[in-house]
Simulated scan of single mutants.
Amino acid sequence: MNTINIVAGGPPELIPDLTKYTDSDTTWVGVDKGTVTLLQAGLIPKEAFGDFDSITDKERGQIEKAAPGLHVYQAEKDQTDLDLALDWALKMNPQSIRMFGVTGGRADHFLGNIQLLYKGLKTNPDIRLIDRQNEIQMFGPGRYTLEARSDKRYISFIPFTEAADGLTLEGFKYPLNNCHITLGSTLCISNELIHSRGTFSFAKGILIMVRSAD
């Protein structure tokens, strides 16, 4: 499987049209009430994870009929349902993982979901949190190329570690050269590409990148 798409139970108004993210190489995974969201979109999950304490008995019956792999957990556990689903996805070694329904709502869940991106740095899959307005990724040291996107014009970089060293931005409206960015800095908020593509690179630390629509 090349892409695994995971749908959690975040606010439905923040979830984009999921049918635009599916093809023959896509595997869908539901997390708790996000499994209902998948079924409502006409998409059948291969796996479903959760304690399913936020759905009705009717919805649970629909999930049990639809999902070939159903993983039910107690509500009291040491990992969130999304964390468990991501662990499964990483074991499948896909080229990319996209997570929907993971922003908005409770702030503790949202912040925890951003931190889950850190798991991907160990195995290097392309993991993204996606909602109607934003795409969020996490990067370790290296050099990366970005394509300009009319739907996600703004690009921001936020340190996840105490600092990011040697940050260089090329092809951006506000370029940087070998810059030291500390935790708490807003220097790299709301930049833009000025060409069809650009690059960013840094030597030390971890960066969160957010691509946003206005």
Rank of each mutant, 00 (worst) to 15 (best):
R60Y: 14
I63H: 00
E64D: 12
A66L: 03
A66C: 07
A67L: 01
A67I: 00
P68A: 09
P68I: 06
L70M: 06
L70K: 02
H71N: 13
V72G: 14
Y73H: 14
E76Y: 05
E76D: 13
K77E: 05
Q79R: 15
Q79D: 15
D81K: 00
L82Y: 00
D83M: 07
L84C: 07
L86P: 04
L90E: 06
L90S: 09
L90V: 08
M92C: 10
S96F: 02
R98A: 12
R98E: 04
V102S: 06
V102K: 01
V102T: 08
T103H: 07
T103E: 07
G104Y: 00
G105Q: 03
G105I: 02
R106N: 11
R106E: 08
A107D: 04
D108R: 05
F110C: 12
F110W: 07
F110D: 07
N113A: 09
L117E: 02
Y118D: 04
Y118W: 10
K119S: 08
K119C: 08
L121D: 01
K122C: 08
T123S: 15
I127R: 05
R128T: 12
R128S: 15
I130D: 00
D131W: 01
R132D: 11
M138Y: 07
G140R: 03
G140P: 06
G142F: 08
G142H: 08
T145H: 08
E147C: 14
E147T: 14
A148P: 04
A148W: 02
R149S: 15
S150R: 11
K152S: 13
R153S: 07
S156D: 11
P159F: 02
F160E: 03
G171P: 07
K173F: 03
Y174L: 12
L176W: 09
N177V: 15
N177Y: 15
C179F: 11
H180D: 01
I181P: 04
T182W: 04
L183M: 12
L183S: 13
T186M: 14
L187G: 09
L187R: 13
N191P: 15
E192T: 04
L193I: 02
R197I: 08
R197M: 14
G198A: 03
F202T: 05
F202P: 06
